[in-house]
Design a protein around this nucleic acid. Structure first.
Lengths: 149, 149
DNA sequence: CCTTGAAGCTACAGTCACTGTAGGGATTAG
DNA sequence: CTAATCCCTACAGTGACTGTAGCTTCAAGG
């Protein structure tokens, strides 16, 4: 019933999950991945379970979950009998953050587009881009736009 | 013709431009703001010119320009006789980055929404959120979504 | 004049999530 | 046996701040 272990090197597992080698070692260092078994020469070996765990992390990171949320999701994934309200909550929070960020970026795109529409081949003295940034009346708007995500 | 200098403290200028005191000192440290004149006791003083420069920086940062782009934009703003192609180019690049990021976030929102729609009060074993993240077939998509901005 | 409390100062460490580098050792194909 | 490619550890660097410790300065009230 047990299939033969098909060990991968760190480079292979990294490639297969779309991560860099250093990133995989980093995840091990901060405890997102368990310490990998080693060859006699000290090189890390990964099996299918480890590969899936890494893919899970990369997928969650791709969706913008911060590492602490990923850690929590992994903890939940390790306990399949528990209710999944917590996982839902984490995902809902992430969705909310994403929606806020989208709204920010849309208004940002609007302003950048306006800047560029109104400035074509003039001197800096009348450059709409520079003017817009220097314009005090617009700064109040911009203050709401933080760095999210 | 010269109006009386109306000096502000660092706290006042920071508040007026929506920055933290430390951030203002940081901008001075990295050369985005010129070294502020000081009181006899060594406290920084800011005039209207400095306030506008800080507001310019905060506005640009609010629009997502990286500090190096801000530095370049300030350099351009300091030379009003030059052509503004460069400022346009910087803004255009930023607009492109913003549009990419929006596209990423929209597909991200879609996937998060799907996760949440399909998972209501079940156990983790059948949790759509966890399942989706563990699903290998979706990882290829996620790899394109990096950290932008 | 003196005190008090807020605000300022420097210098440095910490954040997040990696990424890059230096200087070596292991593994593998030919 | 050798060369190329991978892997190892340890640590520094990134961007753009933010927070902390331990001071000093300043403005207002008594």
């Amino acid at each position: 019933m047990d299939k033969t272990e098909n060990w991968m090197t760190i480079g292979q597992v990294a490639r297969s999950a779309g991560a860099k080698v250093q990133t995989v070692r980093y995840y091990e260092e901060i405890g997102l991945l368990p310490p990998a078994p080693r060859t006699a020469g000290g090189q890390r070996l990964y099996d299918e379970v480890a590969r899936k765990r890494l893919a899970f992390i990369r997928h969650a990171r791709g969706l913008g979950f911060p590492l602490e949320a990923v850690r929590e999701l992994l903890r939940l994934a390790d306990h399949p009998e528990a209710p999944c309200d917590e996982a839902d909550l984490i995902a809902a929070r992430q969705l909310e953050a994403v929606e806020q960020r989208i709204a920010q970026l849309l208004s940002l795109r609007h302003e950048l587009g306006r800047m560029l529409d109104h400035c074509q081949g003039d001197r800096v003295a009348r450059c709409r881009v520079i003017e817009t940034l220097a314009d005090h009346s617009l700064c109040a708007e911009a203050e709401h736009l933080g760095a999210g995500l």
